[in-house]
Simulated assay, not measured.
Amino acid sequence: MRHLIVLAASVVVTVALAGCELAPKESYQNGYRGTGMDTVMVKASAAADDVPAPPYDPPGTDGAPAGGIYENLQVLGGISDEQFNYTMAAITAWVSPAEGCNYCHNPENMASDEKYTKVVARQMLRMTRDINGSWADHVGQTGVTCWTCHRGEAVPSEHWTLPADSTRGSIARNKHGQNDPVSNSAYSSLPNAAVARYLLGGDEPQVARVVSKGRFPSPANTTSVMEAEQTYAMMMHITQSLGVNCTYCHNAQSFQSWSTSNPPRKTAWYGLNMVRAINHNYIAPLTDVLPDNRKGEMGDPFKANCNTCHRGQNKPLGGYPMAKDYPALWMSAVATPPVTTAQAADEAPSDEAP
């Protein structure tokens, strides 16, 4: 009987572990053998088949500015009429293929801003241009389009909102902001608000590194176990979103060391700052514009995190250059993120950083 129980338990454990390994993986040795630097990642899909083709042959960029032809063009007024219509056709396919142009526009008055979706779309256009224009250290020359996040849906399926206040109620029901299996903490018991701490924005970025500088607490050593748990939750979110393990960025001999880390760690560092800028500069200001059904339990709008773009791949859609045919999305940024690429370069992380 004992053998049957052990066998049944083994089957359950095997099935449970297999549930965590649904996608095919690939691994390779990164560095010398025995250094714990085997990198494991989810195999990329055929990205070229996942990205819609341009709506028609891309037109040239010459021609009269669209702003002189159409009314109320607050973002794309400087591009040519042909580029404007081409870009609008692509956006429709990326965001509202079923609803068409009427999802954002009143067909009787295309210039009207009466639909909130048009106000949101305008803000997202500013954001997309800013990402492509200011964050090359993260998106490179691949760039992003609306499809990067939306994938044919009006609202990206991968988003996050602030967790509900779990401190209310009796002592027995107070979970102290953790022990809820939510995607933001990789379905672990770690703090639910870790993503909010690092990706919500604000004047001072939260450094996602926790290494104690001494044995005991002191004014110079304020590192706590609680902070370490939040950092670990954020790191788990990143690895799950990118479909990689820790050594994709870090050296297992010293997770703190930048000089021995892999190049993707710096790319990820810029990415964290970029997502903070997105949520702070472009999404948070839409709080009063969006209806309640596009907000979370705490009344905040749906926001971006790593999985919004990556969807389990180390490069969104396998690194396919999805923005190459859309010059209108590469124009100068309108807004400046709290931490720009130039500032980030001046503040590049070092081994001495806290």
Score class of each variant (00 low, 15 high):
320 Y>T: 12
288 D>Q: 15
317 L>G: 02
290 L>Y: 04
288 D>G: 06
297 E>Q: 13
318 G>M: 02
305 N>C: 13
324 K>S: 11
304 A>G: 05
320 Y>L: 09
289 V>R: 05
295 K>W: 09
273 N>D: 03
299 G>T: 02
309 C>L: 09
299 G>I: 04
305 N>D: 15
314 N>A: 14
304 A>E: 08
306 C>P: 01
292 D>F: 09
315 K>Y: 14
320 Y>R: 06
304 A>I: 14
305 N>A: 14
284 A>V: 07
316 P>S: 05
273 N>C: 00
303 K>E: 06
280 H>T: 03
292 D>C: 08
306 C>M: 12
294 R>L: 15
279 N>V: 04
309 C>N: 05
292 D>T: 12
287 T>Y: 08
283 I>N: 00
278 I>H: 03
321 P>S: 10
282 Y>D: 00
300 D>V: 07
285 P>M: 07
293 N>L: 02
290 L>I: 12
301 P>T: 09
279 N>L: 10
305 N>K: 10
296 G>D: 11
312 G>Y: 04
276 R>L: 02
308 T>V: 08
297 E>W: 07
307 N>I: 12
298 M>A: 15
283 I>S: 00
285 P>L: 08
303 K>D: 04
300 D>K: 10
278 I>N: 02
324 K>A: 13
314 N>T: 11
293 N>V: 06
294 R>T: 07
280 H>G: 03
301 P>K: 07
318 G>D: 07
282 Y>L: 01
292 D>H: 13
314 N>W: 14
312 G>N: 10
274 M>Q: 02
288 D>P: 02
314 N>R: 12
310 H>E: 10
321 P>R: 03
299 G>R: 01
307 N>A: 11
310 H>W: 10
317 L>Q: 05
300 D>E: 15
294 R>C: 05
293 N>A: 06
282 Y>R: 00
324 K>Q: 13
318 G>L: 03
289 V>F: 05
284 A>W: 09
316 P>Y: 03
308 T>Q: 06
315 K>F: 14
275 V>T: 10
298 M>L: 12
302 F>E: 00
288 D>E: 15
297 E>P: 10
313 Q>H: 14
290 L>R: 12
304 A>T: 12
294 R>Q: 14
307 N>H: 13
292 D>V: 13
320 Y>I: 11
276 R>A: 08
318 G>V: 02
292 D>I: 08
298 M>K: 13
320 Y>E: 13
319 G>R: 09
303 K>V: 07
281 N>M: 09
313 Q>N: 15
286 L>N: 00
284 A>L: 12
323 A>H: 02
320 Y>S: 06
311 R>K: 15
